[in-house]
Design a protein around this nucleic acid. Structure first.
Lengths: 339, 339
DNA sequence: TATTCATCTGGTAACGATAACATGGATGCA
DNA sequence: TGCATCCATGTTATCGTTACCAGATGAATA
């Protein structure tokens, strides 16, 4: 039988427990001085009344929400999910809760989202990527809370950074490919005008290839990011038709790389003997598929964990809020889809 | 240059715009009557001062947070991510924001999470699954907000339901397998004591097999859920060793099914000629891998979309809050890993 | 014994928005 | 012309907690 009267407040609990509301408030906190018996009395009264602590009032009065706002491009991406999970785990011990939003790989959408999130008065805000609208940048700088950009190394950071250079990570793979003898190397990614990490990877591909004196024009754009497995497969089909002599292809992510691999399997093209494939992100699928996928581990979970630690340090003052850059060093993982 | 003085409030904006705070408040809402010029004046003052609307105060006074709390077992699961995305998209038009938490497939953890989320005073709460601790059930029933259980058909629903029977979905696959001639069918899943949807699928496997008069003891438990691709592969290895004459195997999810498939490929076992494989969830990988995966589409996104619509209907009163059950009908998708 | 200190508890005001009610003026219609 | 309506805006009080400041008690120290 759901009660129609309005829900009990701390004052009701206080009355029943025979103490002041202030004491009830203290009893709900961890490290405040309340006697053991008072705590217990409050607990019983809470139970009895079915009282539920009201964060909204607490948030207003204390000017603390214990939210950490986080924006990611997509909730359906295992890399970002890994980051968020590690971040969330690292923060929840200290009572901080992630307030998550996604941008659909669109900076305009990101701007809207950031504004919406900041209204909730988070203690800190984590954004994925280092490219934002100028208004978004202004909102972030003026928010008066720690700002952390991740999954990138922005040229002009807003605040803190926990990330890596997408371009350099791809360059490392190319250097290896060139070293083992691949010359005609292609790149499969999304349209260049949207996903900034993907664009950076493509840009890294182009400059690295040119630095090796190689042709950097074997580019397949597979549509607006994120590039799915299927789009990777389609792109591989186009690649094989347009540039049939391609020796190796680097894909913007493991998902598109796996799609590309399956397209080769459907066409009876041997990987890596006829064409080598490289991915990005070290998704689980790359380790388990046959043949297993050469890729780059960007340490998604580590990004989340280090971001969490950074936030905790800044908030408790043990770290000055002056901008710091934590650089992640992606790892090239050589597997069966390449020499 | 970050200002040290404290951030501006509506009163400051009101002063600068030459109106009352109440009018500023109205100007920030969509469908309130404020003249065009006043709106513009408020907008300018807001811009000038860098004012950011404070939801915490708004939440307290209006007793509305515009949050919808959502619990999912894991953020790293494409099925649940699809549901959350569709849910979030359906709600965001009406200004509702998803407040997401994950339970790690653990009802104790879920209880903690539910309590934490309810403190934030959401407008509604969506939980994944229909099994909860008794305290969690009580918290949900007493919350005074719409409760929606998803991805299941609980026997004794707390409030609304948008879901399907995991057991019946698996039964459908078994019926098909038996019809086309498979007799020695196995099941790969997680340990039975944790993931309730996986347990239901296993239970559905057992009863359906028994109803066909077939042996239902070819069960491989691959550890605590969620079962990864690798665990699926390991489980397939054990299955092939313990029950080498198995003709078909049903896996608790497409991810483990894909892992199982790759294990067959590594061992040179032909799929489906030597062994057929069925998955669950219609993940993208199942459609793209070679051979493509027979699976069950549980319409994850549809669950989210219908849940969103349900919430909107209940909140605006166009639907009575009496419990309603929206049943999703999973689809058997026949592909290349089975006859 | 007097004094300091730590522990526990209470009273009061305030966080910043908005619900509820009120008001003045313009508009519409009989 | 008179009265009902609507629109745009203002005034007041309040949502439920907790920061801040005290006070009371008992133990430890000088």
């Amino acid at each position: 039988m759901p009660s129609i009267r309005k829900p009990p407040t701390m004052a009701d609990v206080a009355r029943m427990a025979g103490v002041s509301p202030m004491t009830v408030s203290r009893a709900f906190k961890r490290d405040t001085s309340v006697s053991q018996e008072t705590r217990e009395a409050v607990r019983r009264a809470t139970e009895e009344l079915g009282y539920v602590f009201d964060s909204t009032a607490s948030n207003l009065r204390s000017q603390r929400t214990d939210f950490v706002a986080v924006t990611i491009p997509s909730i359906n991406n295992a890399n970002f999910a890994d980051t968020v999970r590690a971040l969330s785990d690292g923060l929840s011990d200290k009572g901080l809760q992630v307030l998550l939003g996604y941008t659909n790989y669109d900076v305009r959408e990101e701007e809207r989202l950031i504004e919406q999130l900041l209204r909730r008065k988070p203690e800190a805000i984590v954004v994925t990527g280092g490219k934002h609208t100028s208004r978004a940048r202004k909102l972030l700088s003026n928010a008066g809370i720690p700002v952390i950009e991740t999954w990138d190394l922005p040229e002009d950071p807003i605040g803190h950074v926990v990330g890596f250079s997408n371009a350099l990570a791809v360059r490392e793979m190319i250097d290896h490919f060139v070293t083992v003898g691949y010359r005609k190397v292609a790149f499969i990614g999304g349209d260049a005008d949207r996903d900034t990490r993907g664009s950076d990877r493509r840009a890294g591909f182009i400059t690295a290839m040119e630095d090796h004196g190689l042709d950097a024009t074997r580019l397949i754009a597979a549509g607006p990011p994120p590039i799915s497995m299927r789009e990777g497969a389609n792109a591989m089909g186009r690649l094989l038709e347009h540039f049939p002599d391609t020796e190796a292809v680097i894909c913007v992510s493991d998902l598109s790389a796996f799609g590309a691999l399956t397209e080769c399997q459907r066409r009876g093209i041997a990987v890596p003997d006829q064409i080598a494939i490289g991915g990005f992100g070290d998704y689980e699928i790359g380790a388990i598929c046959v043949p297993s996928l050469t890729t780059i581990n960007a340490f998604a979970a580590e990004i989340g964990a280090k971001t969490a630690q950074l936030i905790l340090d800044v908030l408790d003052g043990s770290l000055s809020d002056s901008a710091g850059v934590i650089t992640i060093r992606p790892d090239l993982i050589l597997r069966q889809t390449s020499r």
